[in-house]
Design a protein around this nucleic acid. Structure first.
Lengths: 330, 330
DNA sequence: TTGTAGGCGTTATCAT
DNA sequence: ATGATAACGCCTACAA
């Protein structure tokens, strides 16, 4: 089942077989068809391990991700694999849920398989590992990460501007008592949203109740909702740094406090996960441009000229208006 | 950055380097440490492409999946990659959303990278491709698929028994007018659930309204709910072959027909996706044993003795009682 | 325990 | 256009 076997069966040299499977190589139509026929008969498939070895590029791209089962993450991974495949590459998926140091482990694994690039969706690689990647010719795509380094690209969102718009929406709709709900994850994008919301409020002299709890998931939202709504100075608007948190807050408001949304409480989230559009939520939020993110990564990967200066791409999450913010005037 | 470089720096032979990185090889502690030191200094990592080439096993396992962004699928993929990594393997993710023939393309890709195995979560490989996999030593794990073949394992659920239990639950709670909602996907597990529900109803002389529409997602559930609830003989219980469909049906009932669940309408789903546990749904459903599924796959993969007889593993989805079925007596 | 030599399946270079 | 030959980086007898 190797090229040698095919060559023997077709009565040609191994080189001829190789050329047949190399786009743009010079083979006569006759030998080509002889080779193809023999390959078909033998069930031959080119060995990409061997090919990668000699070509010095494997065609492999590593996807480093935590919390894959989360709506936004799975959507992004889907978009990424989709576009990667369309470009003739193959994705290896590395899960970093177990421990925090595993982002570095993941990158090491990527190096061992001589991946052409690694796309990091979660966690933060150590500087030393980043360096190691660079030395091993592993290009890095950092999505919503902070650290920058040569031979890598960062893809960023307009988190700050979005959060600012969220605050303005609350103010315009006449909300008086504003709150912010976030998790303890402290990832760059979450922090950016939080700080920008707070900063804009401060600029306008508005007080914001700030609550922070647990991991970034639905259950944390439930807890955050409870904490916020039990207060004597109950807020009438909550900006959640994530849709999952927002869903939790909404459910807490409705089912534990019998509040109506948006009449008693306005909510804004971030990500625009599928559930945000479900009838039960109809959440006003910001859309993660997953296809654009994937496209930006692909675009940079296809530009093989390894620019030495760090590269940053800014993408924008646009507001998706639904029904979780009341439209009344002050 | 190859073993040769490390050997030179450490003043030993290439073989010594190789042995240092091969668990259970005989190296003296002194040479070992010399090698490790040199490797560290040079940033050396074993090339798994080359290793796979000579060992005849790459350590790669392909995950073939469609609709990755769906809650159940992403959960399963997470469990699979997790356990794969724990076993020292690496997962390549192949997305088959684009066209139907791409399951075969996916398997071809897996062969080209000399994957040790492929785990198929979606779609159905052609018989000829299955054969090709076998010839290329690619072991196949089929999850909830029909076709069987030598050198492959099937992992199945108790779909039929679960559906039967669902019907019994409806009957016991005094529901009179039963319905079944499913998609047009026609995958083996969906069909099994549907037919078993219908069969048990038939055995008891109960009529079931059967509605089928679109892909297996929330939006289809909305449509199915609408169709079912607009009927003059409106059902008071709906078995949905999937939680996503169930959520859609529930939302249609509540928001388009102002029905209360479970008082006016009882619902049972399947999968136990995270959303089924959300306060807004509290859906009674059947739990996909994702960790067990992954464990079963891993277990079979670790047994390297390639049994020639096709192997089938049966796992059970247990009922998760929540609040979408009324508990009243007839 | 250590080093030497051969081969895994490709592709690239160089003749022909 | 085709075929021989070297090389990619590694592992594994085999011999020392």
């Amino acid at each position: 089942m190797s090229a040698k076997d095919v060559a023997a069966k077709a009565g040609v040299s191994r080189a001829a077989v190789s050329r047949t499977f190399t786009p743009g190589a010079s083979v006569s139509p006759e030998t080509r068809s002889k080779v193809l026929e023999a390959a078909e008969a033998l069930g031959y498939e080119v060995n990409h391990l061997a090919r990668g070895l000699i070509r010095q590029q494997s065609g492999i791209v590593a996807l480093v991700v935590a919390q894959l089962a989360t709506p936004y993450r799975s959507e992004l991974v889907r978009a990424l694999t989709d576009q990667l495949q369309a470009a003739g590459k193959v994705a290896i998926l590395i899960n970093t849920d177990r421990s925090d140091s595993t982002v570095d482990m993941a990158l090491q694994q990527a190096i061992r398989y001589r991946a052409d690039a690694a796309i990091v969706l979660s966690g933060m690689p150590e500087r030393s590992i980043t360096e190691l990647c660079h030395r091993n010719g592993l290009r890095l795509v950092l999505i919503n990460r902070d650290d920058s380094h040569t031979s890598s690209i960062q893809i960023r969102l307009n988190d700050a501007e979005a959060a600012r718009l969220g605050l303005i929406a609350f103010v315009r709709s006449g909300c008086k008592k504003l709150a912010l709900a976030t998790s303890e994850a402290g990832t760059p994008s979450l922090v950016a949203r939080e700080q920008s919301f707070l900063a804009e409020a401060g600029k306008r002299g508005i007080d914001v109740i700030c609550e922070r709890y647990g991991p970034t998931g639905y259950e944390s939202g439930l807890v955050l909702g409870e904490r916020l709504l039990v207060r004597p100075d109950r807020p009438d608007a909550v900006f959640c740094t994530t849709d999952l948190l927002a869903c939790g807050v909404m459910d807490a408001a409705r089912h534990r406090f019998s509040l109506a949304i948006p009449d008693d409480l306005s909510i804004i989230g971030f990500d625009n996960i599928p559930q945000a559009g479900w009838e039960a939520y109809q959440l006003t939020t910001f859309t993660q441009p997953v296809e654009d993110i994937a496209a930006a990564a692909m675009d940079w990967l296809s530009h093989t000229e390894t620019q030495e200066k760090p590269h940053v791409v800014h993408l924008t999450a646009t507001m998706a208006w639904r029904k979780s913010v009341r439209s009344g005037k002050p």
